[in-house]
Design a protein around this nucleic acid. Structure first.
Ligand SMILES: [Mn+2]
Ligand SMILES: [Mn+2]
Ligand SMILES: [Zn+2]
Ligand SMILES: [Zn+2]
Lengths: 144, 144
DNA sequence: ACATATATGATAATGATTATTAATGGAATA
DNA sequence: TATTCCATTAATAATCATTATCATATATGT
């Protein structure tokens, strides 16, 4: 399924939920589906500003919250570098984060289910969410 | 090695580094070693205030930074619930976090080395740090 | 086109953390 | 012991990403 199709399906599903699709919301959703860079709210805002000169950062935040409540975006909270968003895989999954260039990538899936099962057994917790972050230097930054 | 001994060793090691051990710093360090609750800066501050009525929150933050730079405390950044600190195991390790009562515990160690090795191979990253958080309901909160 | 509930954008507020700075106090020196 | 010296403290202000507020604009169903 390509991006266009995904976008159409997502918009249709949101409409069915009673969500109004405004140009601003459409633009934010499209932006999220067209990148794998895990952008910040600010990056989404400045990325869209040329085409939507009246867009407000508050609207970007509100749209991100809306998508989060619909489970259509994954929010990665970083107190240092600001929050980042993944609209392509809006479910919990591991991330590799370069501390030099701040690139964030999705490593091919580990067996997270097995890890969660083990933690659950050890702690007695019912695990409902997780956050697996691996920090270091990406291949490019190692050369510098 | 009990807490008292750990405290004495840590203080001695800091002194050797040229760090002055003030009453405020000693109190923060002792507080951190005497709990496994992963307290916030605010909790450390309010916990010590009765015995140190002139203590400033800024001093708590500065002491935490000092300890972090000496690798003697692990800082867990949470943008929602504020940062939390672990002075007993000041190296990266997994955590189970209750989303209801905000309790944070250390699950018995998974084989994190193996996981990191796998991510490193898959991504080409040199992994220098990690953050493995598992969110859910603790045993007590499940009963409610 | 109209009615109306919702969304937007400008702006102010929030709150945890960090920066600033004058006053304090411990240690080295005279 | 008195005197510098300089790191530390405490009070306070500043920061900055995110949220809240609210008057205006607009999407949607009729
Ligand atoms: Mn991702
Ligand atoms: Mn811990
Ligand atoms: Zn990099
Ligand atoms: Zn709990």
């Amino acid at each position: 399924m390509d991006i266009k199709e995904k976008l159409a399906k997502l918009v249709a599903s949101l409409k069915k939920e009673g969500v109004r699709i405004t140009p601003q919301r459409y633009a934010v959703i499209a932006f999220l589906l067209n990148t794998d860079s895990h952008p910040s709210a600010e990056e989404i805002y400045t990325g869209l500003l040329p085409q939507y000169p009246t867009l407000s950062l508050a609207t970007v935040y509100k749209t991100l919250h809306l998508l989060k409540s619909e489970q259509e975006v994954l929010e990665l909270e970083f107190s240092e570098m600001g929050n980042r968003y993944d609209g392509r895989k809006p479910w919990p999954h591991p991330h590799a984060i370069c501390t030099r260039c701040r690139k964030i990538i999705d490593p091919p899936m580990l067996d997270t289910a097995a890890i969660i099962e083990e933690v659950s057994k050890e702690t007695g917790f019912v695990i409902t969410n997780h956050r697996l972050d691996f920090f270091g230097l990406c291949a490019e930054c190692q050369k510098e």
